[in-house]
Computed example of a mutant assay.
Amino acid sequence: MSGPNTDYDPVEVTPLKAEEVEAARDAALTAIAAANSLEELKQTRLDHAGDRSPLALANREIGALPPAARKEAGQRVGKARGAVNQALAARQKVLEAEHEARMLVEETVDVTLPTDRVPAGGRHPLTTGAEYIADIFVAMGWEVAEGPLIEAEWLNFDALNLGPDHPARTMQDTFWTEPAENHVVLRTHTSPVQARTMLTREAPIYVVCPGRVFRTDEYDATHSPMFHQVEGLAIDEGISMANLKGTLDHFATQMFGEGIVTRFRPSYFPFTEPSAEVDLTCFVCRGAQVVDAGDGQLVTCRTCKGEGWIEWGGCGIVNPRVLIACGVDPERYSGFAFGMGIDRTLMFRTGLSDLRTLFEGDVRLTTAFGSEL
């Protein structure tokens, strides 16, 4: 086994030559002095004091020298690196002072100017949303109808063909007031407004009914014990499902843009017959089921989960039993009704993913969405 190379001459290691170390130091000092901004100085630091800088690479070569030669080479490289670091620190202070002085000039605020200390508020998006929906139907010649939040059991259930044994009457869905023998509830839908309208007006009837409703649901990202619905009712001679489809297609287009239409899926509701669930063309993928994720790569649409449709509400032809209960002649008149959640519709339009955001009273929501939709 050979011994240590005691005859190794450090002058033969190019990065450790005195003139090479001095040249690297002088180049670093020149670059530091030429840096005119903190960004330029940052790059200079990387180039001349970073791990891949000439002086750092020279420092690594010291370990290859015999013990007798390491001290001199180490002192030479260390002194050069110390000079560079001192120059960097000094230049950093100068540039930071210049930056702060420039900021004070460029971003000067006149604190003597008068200001409105009361920030401007904003209307809640649920309020503006309900009014926007109402305006769509008013433009079609419809009227807006309203009713009380605390409703008689007969109007909330019996008049709408929800019999005494219907599950929706139980405590799992309905808030009942005390005493129970008064038969008064917090309305579970805005359909009682439709019943009141048929009882007090003569056909033809075209009304839209937005408002708050209450059910004993859990409070989470998609449910709330208090939420908002909009329902529509049309009673006239010769009303059919075709009229209903055209109305909802127009409603969808006005809310979500051109090309958005609806489809019906057979369903069951006590107050309509036939009944249907209303689906909406996905307004993100426009029914294509896939979206462009960038670079031409197509991925499944997350909004509709690749189905191309989004559940929106329910609808149908008004059940003749409801017409009779509300004093409308089913032999002469027919009608359609529909209902959607205003909260869900606004979540679609604004991109909100958590229903609770609408009810937490955060002023940032009202200022962002409250002025207009």
Rank of each mutant, 00 (worst) to 15 (best):
T127N: 10
I235M: 11
A203I: 09
R76S: 12
E273G: 02
L244Q: 08
T247I: 07
W309T: 04
T357L: 11
A64I: 06
S334Y: 01
G287W: 02
A89Q: 14
K245F: 07
E22I: 12
D116L: 15
T350W: 11
I260E: 08
I62T: 08
M171P: 09
R102L: 14
T350I: 12
N59A: 14
E372H: 13
A337V: 00
L155F: 06
L29A: 04
A288C: 09
Q75D: 15
S53F: 03
G163A: 01
I150K: 13
A139M: 09
E72T: 14
Y132G: 06
V109N: 09
L199I: 12
I62R: 06
V299I: 15
D249R: 11
L346R: 00
I260F: 04
A80E: 09
T115P: 12
A90K: 10
L358F: 00
N156P: 01
N319F: 00
D173V: 10
P54E: 10
Q43T: 05
I324Y: 02
C209K: 05
R265S: 09
G314C: 06
R286V: 10
D354S: 04
G141K: 13
R60Q: 14
G3Q: 01
R201F: 06
M171D: 13
P167M: 07
Y8L: 14
P225W: 02
V299F: 08
D173P: 06
V213F: 01
A234G: 02
H99W: 08
A34F: 02
E277S: 12
S353I: 07
G82A: 14
V278L: 08
F271N: 06
D135G: 11
P148F: 07
Q43F: 00
E151N: 08
S224R: 00
T247P: 03
E258P: 02
D236P: 03
G341D: 01
A83H: 04
G121M: 10
T30Q: 01
L95T: 03
G3K: 03
H124R: 11
E153V: 07
R332K: 14
N36I: 04
A368Y: 15
G129Q: 01
E100R: 15
T174I: 08
F175C: 01
G3N: 02
P164Y: 14
L65C: 02
V208I: 15
D9R: 10
K245M: 13
E331G: 05
T300L: 10
Y333I: 06
A83L: 06
P179I: 06
K245V: 14
A90P: 01
L41Q: 10
G257M: 09
V105Q: 14
N319Y: 00
D51C: 03
A368S: 15
G294V: 05
A73P: 02
T44V: 13
T303I: 07
F175L: 03
